[in-house]
Amino acid sequence: MEPVGRDGLLRDYGLATRIDEAPLVNSPELSGEPLENLVELATRLCGMPYGVINVVTSDEQRQVAAVGIDAGICSRQDSMCSKVFLSGEATVVPDASIDPRFAANPFVTGEIAAVRFYASVPLETASGFVIGSLCVFSNSSASLSDEQQEMLEILARQAVQLLELQRRTLQLNSALEELRESNAKLAEFAGRVSHDLRSPLTTILGYVELGEDDVESDHPAAEYLQLIGASGNRMLAMLEDVLHYSRMGGGLQRQRVSLQEVASEVAGDLGLSYGADGVLDSEDLKLHVDHGQLRILLQNLVANAVNYQSPDRDLKVRISGISNYHGATVLVADNGKGIAPADRQRVLEPLVRLHREGDGQGSGLGLAICRRIVEAHGGELTLKETPGGGTTAVISFPG
């Protein structure tokens, strides 16, 4: 039985379903030249002058690749392939003019063409959906050897794989477009919510400060006001992190950037000493990245090192990098508490915190922001252990 919704399924493959309908996607690298090359191979292996890949819709036959003739469209009623493409097996006809299935067909009678030899193989997917057929034909009677028929069947399976590749590519493109739209909406929503919440929160914190000025330090209300202020400031920091997370990655403005200069800026942002004898030190490397987002990336990684430093040693953060024909790799190594191997992938997800004793406050978005920035640049962020203890962020940027 023919699947319900044939035209809808064909649209999933990027194949138009009406004579007046444009293809859904321009993918010549998938459905054009590769399929034509495959048809060319089929005609040569079978010794035939003509070959086509036909897609059969609910009411038409569309030739998506053709050799020896110009690709065209005809009604499904006139199609030879539509008579046999759902048979589940190859069809080989030495002389179509004496075959009762095709003798009156306009492709045989001369009304459209004068086909005599005809061979076709269904293009059936793993799910059982038959897209159409691969066929070769001639204006004179002929035959195929068993080996030639076997080769034609192999090529038909290859055609299905190419069309499946196109379907998956379309699905991926659609998902990426939905993701872009979702991210844009998220950024807009986060900005609006951040603004709407920050205004009253800032007002509350302002009154808390006024209250602290008016209340004696030994009054019970002083402690309450401190707790309210601390909670309010944490909430304000969380709003800023959510806003950063939603906005990071989009609209990159790549330029040649000095890693050393950005590291120096980060040290200034965080109030850290910089240089060979400082808390933060950096080698130099030229990167083709977005300057602002690199700064936020390094700032988050170094801030993490500060928040999770080891109580047993003075904090040190070393930023280094190497470049090769693949691109560049930046290493941000600290000597802090480190992250257990089982947690290194998990902490890169949004809102994940380890809640270890002695850890500083955080929203669980810092490393997620870093990952988002790196992936927007087409790179990858991984975490590993620093020799001697600590965490090293390994950031790969493509060339």
Score class of each variant (00 low, 15 high):
Arg6Cys: 01
Gly8Ala: 10
Arg11Asp: 06
Leu15Val: 08
Leu15Asn: 06
Asn26Trp: 10
Ser27Trp: 11
Ser31Thr: 08
Glu33Tyr: 03
Glu36His: 12
Asn37Thr: 12
Glu40Ile: 10
Gly47Leu: 00
Gly47Trp: 14
Val56Lys: 03
Ser58Tyr: 01
Asp59Pro: 01
Gly68Asn: 14
Ile69Leu: 12
Ile73Leu: 11
Cys74Phe: 11
Leu86Thr: 12
Glu89Ile: 07
Ile98Cys: 07
Phe102Pro: 01
Asn105Asp: 06
Asn105Ala: 01
Glu111Trp: 00
Glu111Ile: 00
Ile112Met: 02
Ala114Glu: 07
Val115Asn: 04
Phe117Ser: 12
Leu134Ser: 04
Ser138Met: 05
Ser140Thr: 14
Ala142Ile: 02
Ser143Gln: 08
Ser143Arg: 12
Glu147Thr: 09
Gln148Thr: 08
Glu150Gln: 14
Met151Gln: 15
Met151Val: 13
Ile154Ser: 15
Leu155Pro: 11
Gln166Cys: 00
Arg167Lys: 15
Arg168Phe: 12
Gln171Asn: 08
Leu176Tyr: 13
Glu181Ala: 01
Ala187Val: 05
Glu188Arg: 00
Ala190Trp: 15
Arg198Met: 04
Arg198Pro: 02
Gly206Thr: 08
Tyr207Trp: 14
Leu210His: 15
Asp213Ile: 10
Asp214Arg: 14
Ser217Lys: 13
His219Ala: 05
Ala221Ser: 11
Leu225Phe: 01
Arg234Glu: 14
Ala237Pro: 00
Met238Gly: 09
Met238Glu: 09
Leu239Cys: 05
Glu240Met: 01
Leu243Lys: 10
His244Thr: 09
Tyr245Ile: 03
Tyr245Asn: 04
Gly249Ala: 06
Gly250Ala: 10
Gly251Glu: 15
Leu259Arg: 13
Glu261Gly: 00
Ala263Lys: 08
Ser264Trp: 11
Ala267His: 08
Gly268Asn: 12
Ser273Arg: 14
Tyr274Glu: 10
Tyr274Pro: 03
Gly275Thr: 12
Ala276Phe: 04
Ala276Thr: 14
Asp281Glu: 00
Leu285Ser: 05
Asp290Gly: 01
His291Ile: 03
Gln299Thr: 15
Asn300Gly: 02
Ala303Ile: 10
Asn304Val: 00
Asn304Lys: 08
Tyr308Ser: 06
Lys316Asp: 03
Gly321Ser: 09
Tyr325Gln: 08
Thr329Val: 13
Thr329Asp: 09
Leu331Val: 09
Leu331Thr: 15
Val332Arg: 15
Asn335Pro: 07
Asn335Tyr: 13
Ile339Gln: 10
Ala340His: 12
Pro341Lys: 08
Pro341Leu: 03
Asp343Glu: 06
Leu351Ile: 03
Glu357Trp: 03
Glu357Ala: 10
Gly358Asp: 09
Gly358Thr: 07
Asp359Thr: 05
Gly362Leu: 02
Gly366Ala: 09
Ile369Gln: 15
Arg372Trp: 07
Gly378Met: 05
Gly379Leu: 05
Thr386Gln: 03
Thr386Val: 03
Pro387Glu: 15
